[in-house]
Design a binder for these strands. Structure first.
Lengths: 221, 221
DNA sequence: GCCAAAACCGACCCGCGGGTCGGTTTTCAG
DNA sequence: CTGAAAACCGACCCGCGGGTCGGTTTTGGC
């Protein structure tokens, strides 16, 4: 039942530009003070709107949180998981995963993107309706299994360190997420240094040389 | 201005037993739903008290959070840091640290103690007054420096893996804290298995053999 | 058994924050 | 220029939750 086209000229779903600003500001505030402690009035004043003005763009506070999370998850999927999926060799895949994920978490150099914020946010899944919470959690779970899968592959090929792949995968995750907690731009370690260190740790400590460095694909002696 | 002793006989600071129950219940709830989202009425009903009954034992909601955190930090200090301080060899110290910390986080087998809860809690330092927040943060910082110190010692002795000690220390932290997030008793991995894996990872991946297995302390020659 | 202190409760106060509403300003296609 | 939709605001509603208070029950020392 869409209205007559003549009376509804190319309706935009509420100015995209402002919506993005709201997402950003809200993500920042929520990360800093927590979801419950964040006021919609605060979000508004952060983007130069009154509380009621904010409601012109969002449906409810709950929905705001949910949308931010989905947005973050989508970005994660597209910037990290998707590229890694294309890599056949599990070692290379893991390396790429580590680099992309660290980059995602630390955000772009110009501070754009909502990387670090969203990362912490994703663990605020409380405050969501059970159904939505389950949805977010399932996406997270998929990601975890993907990482663990790469490690398992390595282990099956005898190219993985002597550690339980599940524990290793979760530790990888923990170390990454923790990044957003402690890294502050302008510290003694540069963004690039941190990212490289994370990749080195992941690759250097967990991955072993191939048992058979046979370069070609022919395996028969 | 303490009142006359005859009118104030040995006042106990409000029954210790009940206070502990309140701490436990509150910690559970706060971890599950967040500080702001947790009601004092809920805390009360979790321990069989009315809201006003809870206020007989605590001074305010803020103080409750603060006290729980201090309690947790004290336990951490006494169960993890203190024992490790006594170990001279940095490799052994790191191993002990890993084991004790993992045990602390996963809690006692009987589910007593407020280990896992408090761990997550400590990162809820928002919701605290700035001064208190700073205090908690400083304690956390001390702990981090202690861990990093052990790694630095190893590095100085050429016994550390080829990774930046700061990044390694933070990753250690992250992996540990993350434990509380994903480990669920009754899963495919037992508590003991997880703890052992964490210790193996820490020790096996980060620590290298001594360059000189010379047993004595003589270094010349 | 007495009595004071401790433990506890129900009812209440009140400010804050999510959400709504009626109206005003801004924007922009025709 | 015009008119209609979009963007925005101030004022308001209302339930919820932190905190208080006056009073009742329970506890334990003597």
């Amino acid at each position: 039942m869409p209205e007559n086209a003549s009376t509804m000229p190319a309706r935009r779903p509420a100015s995209r530009r402002m919506l993005d600003s709201i997402y950003r500001a809200a993500a920042d505030l929520i990360v800093e003070k927590g979801f419950e402690a964040t006021t919609l009035a605060e979000v508004g004043s952060a983007v130069g709107l009154a509380k009621s003005g904010v409601y012109h763009h969002i449906k409810s506070k709950q929905d705001l949180l949910y949308d931010i999370m989905r947005h973050g998850m989508a970005r994660l999927e597209q910037d990290v998981i998707e590229p890694a999926r294309a890599v056949a060799d599990p070692a290379d895949r893991l390396r790429l995963l580590a680099e992309r994920y660290a980059e995602f978490i630390l955000g772009a150099e110009d501070g754009s993107g909502l990387g670090p914020r969203v990362t912490t946010l994703v663990h605020e899944s409380r405050g969501l309706s059970p159904a939505r919470k389950r949805e977010i959690e399932r996406a997270r779970w998929r990601y975890y299994r993907f990482v663990r899968g790469a490690m398992q592959e390595l282990a099956d090929q005898g190219r993985f360190a002597e550690v339980n792949p599940t524990v290793a995968a979760m530790s990888f995750f923990g170390a990454m997420v923790w990044l957003a907690q402690w890294y502050r731009p302008g510290g003694e370690l540069s963004r690039r240094q941190v990212i490289d260190s994370m990749v080195e740790m992941t690759a250097g400590l967990l991955i072993r040389r191939k048992p058979r460095p046979a370069k070609g694909k022919s395996r028969n002696g």
